[in-house]
Design a protein around this nucleic acid. Sequence first.
DNA 1: AATTATTTATCGTATTGCGATAAATAATTG
DNA 2: CAATTATTTATCGCAATACGATAAATAATT
Lengths: 71, 71
Amino acid sequence: MEGNIIFNIDVMLAKRKMSVTELSERVGITLANMSVLKNGKAKAIKISTLIKLCEALDCQVGDILEYKKAE
Amino acid sequence: MEGNIIFNIDVMLAKRKMSVTELSERVGITLANMSVLKNGKAKAIKISTLIKLCEALDCQVGDILEYKKAE
DNA sequence: AATTATTTATCGTATTGCGATAAATAATTG
DNA sequence: CAATTATTTATCGCAATACGATAAATAATT
C-alpha cells in the first residue's frame, strides 16, 4: 500500500482568514483550478505555483503539503 | 522580487547515507531525472513522485522542499 | 589509470497544469 | 423563503512539463 500527500491549504486559509477566491487572485490562477489544487485533485504542481502559494499564505511548503504514510 | 523553493534532497540523502543512484531506483525514475529534481532544475513535480520521495527517504514534504523568501 | 557516481543535455511521447467557460452545489444574507 | 455569493466540479484545448531513453561530460573514488 502507498502513502499519500494531503493538501492543507484549507488550514492555512482559516488561519489567515482568507477566502479561496482571494487566494486564487493572489496566486494568479483561476478559482476553478485553485479548487482542484486545494482539494487534492491535482496530479502535479508547478514549482512556480508552489512559490506563489507560500508567498500568499506566508507559510512553508510543509504547512500545505503533508505526507501521510499508509498503515 | 520573488522567493524560491529549495530542494533539500541532498540533506536527506546524507542523513540516510543513501546514494542518488539508490534513491532513483527506489523512487522509480531514472538517475538523470532524479539529478534534475535534486538540483532544483525541475519546474514542476508530480504528486506521485513526491509521495515516492517521502517514502524512500522516510521524511516529510517539508524536509525536502523549503520555501525561501526573497529579502 | 580505471572505475564508479553524478550531472548535463537532447529528443520524443505521454501527462498534466491551467486558462476559459459553464453548470452544479453549498453557504450566506436580507 | 428567495437572492446573492462562494465554492466545487466538469469539459475543452493548448502550452508546458515530466520523464524515459540515451549519450556525453564531469566529478569522485579506488
